[in-house]
Simulated scan of single mutants.
Amino acid sequence: MTDFPIFDGHNDLLSCLQREGETAQSGFFAGRDGDITLEKCRAGGFAGGLFAIWPTNDPATRVDPMATLREFPEIPQGRALADTLAQAALFARLTRSWPDALRACRSVAEIETARAEGAIAAVLHLEGAEAIGPDMDLLHLLYAAGLRSLGPVWSRPNAFGHGVPFNFPASPDTGPGLSEAGRALVRECDRLGILVDLAHLNEAGFWDVAATSTRPLVATHSAAHAVTPATRNLTDRQLDAMAERGGLVGLNFGCAFVRADGAKTPDTAPEVLIRHLDHLLEKLGETGVALGSDFDGTMIPAFLKDAAGLPKLVQAMRDADYGEGLVSRICWGNWMGLLSRVIG
């Protein structure tokens, strides 16, 4: 187990459990074959994170997961609503049934209490807001249920904006930005104290959020475009804007987003992640960089494999001469500082 508790900016456990069914959900997902189980979290020091609701893509859409360019069509609001409600209910059942293992948290104080009491601190996140209508009633319902972080889009278009497709090598400047409904959603998230996640927005959408929101600019699970020129990564100009606003990037572990060659292969060394951390630290400073694994949602480097492997990344940071204070901030403190300024 790592010496430091780890707060992670993104995982896709909830959508996986929805697909895997009752067997995987029983016993607090103890026996599932995935990146996150209770045992793996305990072994790796995974002490909390943003747990994403992700309305899944149309099953009829066939996209080669190894393709260089992957574009996804818009999904119907009705199906997105069904997925969103099902995963929100699953989150509520898990956190209500096993509060000593997984604790729903709505503030930094609750996160710190869960950590002190040995429970995994779980903050509810929505990745792709297709289910939310123009009246935003669902946003307020989800907020009451604990939602504290929201990405207006996943990597597909919706009523709020345009998600960036997966492509390499390519620019994140792939189309138009937020709609008027998207700007209204950002303003309401600001008012409520919901973090607006930039991770899957295209570049035009990024700048629209920057112009609309008064909050820090945050990407929960992204990497540096200057190191890996994938569309999902952030350019230096974007990182500079984030630094000016006291923002934060949680480093995505996805192999195709961190390797310099963009290859989708788990044969990805610790030094590959360190190169991104070095660049992000240079642009954002020591308080603007954290972790955003995308566990259960992407191809994880084989040296890590899953949540149990997190101590190996901690050791890689030490081997790169990151001091203990910096490692602690990347693993936990920077997320706490950011969230305290957004959700309270």
Rank of each mutant, 00 (worst) to 15 (best):
Trp54His: 11
Arg156Phe: 02
Ala52Leu: 05
Asn57Gln: 15
Ala114Met: 02
Ser107Leu: 01
Gln25Lys: 11
Thr37Met: 02
Asn57Leu: 15
Ala30Thr: 06
Arg70Pro: 03
Ala129Asn: 04
Ala145Gln: 14
Arg62Ser: 11
Ile111Asp: 10
Arg148His: 12
Val123Tyr: 09
Phe72Asp: 01
Ser97Gly: 11
Gly151Lys: 00
Leu81Phe: 08
Arg148Thr: 08
Glu130Lys: 03
Trp98His: 15
Phe91Glu: 04
Gly31Cys: 04
Ala82Asn: 09
Glu74Asn: 08
Asp135Val: 03
Gly78Trp: 07
Ser26Thr: 13
Arg79His: 10
Asp100Gln: 15
Thr95Ser: 11
Pro55Glu: 02
Leu102Phe: 09
Ala30Leu: 04
Arg106Ala: 15
Gln87Asn: 06
Gln77Val: 12
Leu69Val: 11
Ala119Pro: 00
Ala129Pro: 01
Ala129Ser: 09
Thr37Pro: 02
Asp35Ile: 03
Trp98Val: 11
Leu142Ser: 07
Gly151Phe: 00
Ile111Val: 15
Asp33Tyr: 08
Val63Glu: 04
Ser149Gln: 02
Glu22Leu: 12
Ala116Asn: 08
Thr113Cys: 14
Ala119Gln: 02
Leu90Arg: 07
Leu141Glu: 14
Ile75Val: 12
Asp83Cys: 01
Ala92Asp: 14
Met66Ile: 09
Gly49Arg: 07
Trp154Leu: 03
Gln25Tyr: 06
Pro55Trp: 02
Gly27Ile: 00
Arg106His: 15
Gly45Asp: 05
Trp54Ala: 10
Thr95Arg: 10
Trp54Val: 11
His140Cys: 10
Asp83Tyr: 05
Ile132Ser: 09
Leu141Phe: 10
Thr56Arg: 13
Thr68Phe: 15
Arg156His: 06
Thr113Ala: 12
Val108Met: 12
Pro73Met: 08
Cys16Asp: 11
Thr84Ala: 12
Ser155Asn: 13
Glu112Tyr: 07
Arg32Ile: 12
Ala67Leu: 03
Leu38His: 13
Tyr143Gly: 13
Cys16Asn: 13
Leu69Met: 10
Pro99Cys: 06
Thr84Val: 03
Ala104Gln: 07
Gly78Tyr: 05
Val108Thr: 15
Asp137Trp: 09
Arg148Cys: 12
Ala104Leu: 09
Ala145Ser: 12
His140Val: 06
Leu81Val: 05
Val153Thr: 15
Ala89Glu: 11
Arg148Tyr: 09
